[in-house]
Design a binder for these strands. Structure first.
Lengths: 226, 226
DNA sequence: TGTTCATAATAGCAATACTATTATTTAAAA
DNA sequence: TTTTAAATAATAGTATTGCTATTATGAACA
């Protein structure tokens, strides 16, 4: 099943492209597992190196620090979602149906057939849910945004905003609705699992159906078509 | 203007109640200023102690670590918002009008007349916007939630959910809409200032009018009353 | 007047976030 | 096949962070 996909990410995110070498791929693979396991705060390059049988200094030759590694992983995730949306909406013209597919992809991107063996999309999804906002809630946000470090997220927002505007050209907040759908999808999965007082949906096993239904309710109601 | 308000917070948040001593109040005051200035990542107790002319060890006798201090500040903020909502909706019965006031309070809580001299509500609002989600995006979230560390946020969510249900008893997602309004309010202020591609609203000076209008549009449209 | 309590001052230690240096392996070029 | 370059491993080291312990000072109070 390993099709030859290469997720394209901003060069400024890394010092050496991890997708080019086996050590690089190993860093990606194990960092996903380890961040999920211990959380971003307790995660560091020494533990990562130990776990993958390499050295701290070697990891540092790929990523400047753990913030950049997180940003890389999060960007990877959104680029992956964007790619899945493109695949799933191919040949579909009805914007209404496109938005349905976008929402479906948002909550279930992690369950799609894995095409890249060194990335466990399902665990990566958990990381984005739990740690994703830390990638841009930083003092250097303006500088990093101006350098294009958040392009994958920005582009996806633009893409979904276009579908929204197609569906309802008079809707005044297409970008806000787009980014709100992303945030809501992740937040309410997190809430359902950890802070149930903050939501009304439940998750059984890996069934995100209620989250998906809620997003559809919100999106189509806001857009005045339902 | 200093009315004798005491914001009531969960005892588990601190080791010693900072509201009880002048050193404690100083810790609150200066931590707000310093976190805003350098960001949560670069903030630590040594710098805080230095800035306020005290010692690291003294700060540690009030808060277990910087996570707990952040949680304290965030809880303080939400309790303050909750208090303001209660004040502003006193004697108002129409749930529709209540929701208007809630949204207004959410975006402008920081501009209200400051009643507690050692807390700069306006700066605290910036901290909650920029660092707030880090308070509950942690590995220990389940344990801390079960100990009631997020009660202020949970209670506010419940309060607003009740108003929503009053307004539209058939609406299936009152808690989700409530928490989404909180998150959206803060996110889109942050986006407008730092990641403008992710929103459609603009902020001029300290005028959050467009954010407020958007929240009203979303809330009332979703609830089917507009 | 003595006792208790909070804070200040200082020190110290283990872990973190990096950087530098050298040695070894691998892999491509001549 | 040898040379050379590049990537990685091994090791060490430094500055900062996160936190604890010890003692001294001063205020409060009984």
């Amino acid at each position: 099943m390993a099709i030859g996909i290469k997720i394209s990410l901003h060069e400024g995110l890394y010092l050496r492209d991890p997708q080019e070498t086996s050590l690089g791929k190993n860093i990606i693979k194990h960092s996903i597992i380890l961040i999920d396991e211990v959380g971003l705060e307790a995660f560091n390059f020494k533990k990562l190196a130990k776990q993958m049988g390499s050295t701290e200094a070697s990891v540092y030759r790929y990523f400047e620090n753990k913030h950049m590694l997180l940003l890389y992983l999060v960007s990877w995730y959104w680029e992956w979602v964007s790619f899945m949306i493109d695949m799933n909406t191919m040949n579909i013209n009805d914007p209404r149906q496109k938005l349905h597919i976008i929402i479906d992809t948002l909550v279930s991107a992690s369950r799609e057939n894995p095409a890249i063996d060194y990335v466990n999309e399902s665990i990566l999804h958990r990381i984005v849910i739990a740690e994703g906002t830390k990638a841009y809630h930083i003092k250097e946000v303006d500088k990093e945004n101006s350098e294009g470090f958040f392009l994958n997220y920005n582009n996806l927002s633009e893409k979904v905003a276009n579908v929204i505007s197609e569906l309802n050209p008079n809707f005044p907040y297409p970008h806000a609705l787009a980014s709100n759908l992303f945030e809501m999808a992740n937040n309410h999965i997190y809430f359902a699992l950890h802070l149930p007082e903050l939501t009304d949906v439940k998750i059984k096993g890996d069934n995100y159906k209620e989250v998906q239904e809620m997003l559809e309710y919100f999106a189509f109601k806001i857009l005045g078509c339902k």
